[in-house]
Amino acid sequence: MKKEHDQGKYKYGMVIDLDKCTGCGTCMVACAAENNVSVRPDESDKQRSISWMQVYKADNGKEFPEAETVYFPRPCMHCEQDGRGGHAPSCVSVCVATATTLDKNTGIVSQIYTRCIGCRYCQAACPYKARYFNWWDAYFPVDKGLERYLSPEVSPRMRGVIEKCSFCHHRLMRARTKAYADGRRKIKENEYITACAEACPAQAITFGDLNNPKHKVAQLIKSKNAFRILERLNTKPKVYYLSSRDWVRKIADNPVDEFSPISG
């Protein structure tokens, strides 16, 4: 039977260049706008606000005027493993209702809102705090008119369920549909780009197939400056970072033992 779409082994991933990232937060806004993330009147309650892409701020711990800041934009890492060799990310293996899964063909960790019972076990299990619970109903008061910008490509969530970065999965669907309409089986590198990568004004985010040596991401992760957050947890994230600053790479991974700086 001929398959409709190319179901080959893809491993979509992201590389974020922290030397370029300016901490501007456009990726956060782009993600929220793209994915119908609700905005509440008080977004300063960070423990309860939702941001699939969260920019974290860190410093080198030095005193004025040696202090330096770095920003870590953190989407869902779309981990490949749970940290002990289990071939599903921590959040997936714990989910009670199979409401989140790892798609072996794309590497994308999904989240099915209408399946989720809201037990939040996945949230407890994710070391990256990438999962967000809807403590309230989405904030779209009647007559305010805000619901008019909602995209039909991503279903708005109800109260009581978990949501998280989907690597803009609907954009993959969009690209697949287009490729199919054009009679192609493969989608091109620039056809499936996440909203955050597309929006970043500093071009700090690159997205693509880590399995495809021709894709920029696959080349970038070979850099000596490439690293992942909490690498030693062995969750095998598909989001990589680049930084030429030793302290930045160091701060990303709880280094108990020796950290080997890269000269130059």
């Binding site: 501007c24 937060g25 456009t26 956060m28 806004v29 782009a30 706008a33 905005v39 007559d143 305010k144 008119g145 805000l146 008019r148 910008y149 597309e198 929006a199 970043c200 004004p201 500093a202 071009q203």
Partner: peptide, 21 residues
């Protein structure tokens, strides 16, 4: 001017368009 990217304000422009209040 801006090959591909925009700033966070520009990115949220639709809220400024639609928000009645």
């Amino acid at each position: 001017v801006n090959p591909g990217g925009i700033c966070p304000s520009g990115m949220g422009g639709l809220q400024l368009l639609y928000d009645r209040d």
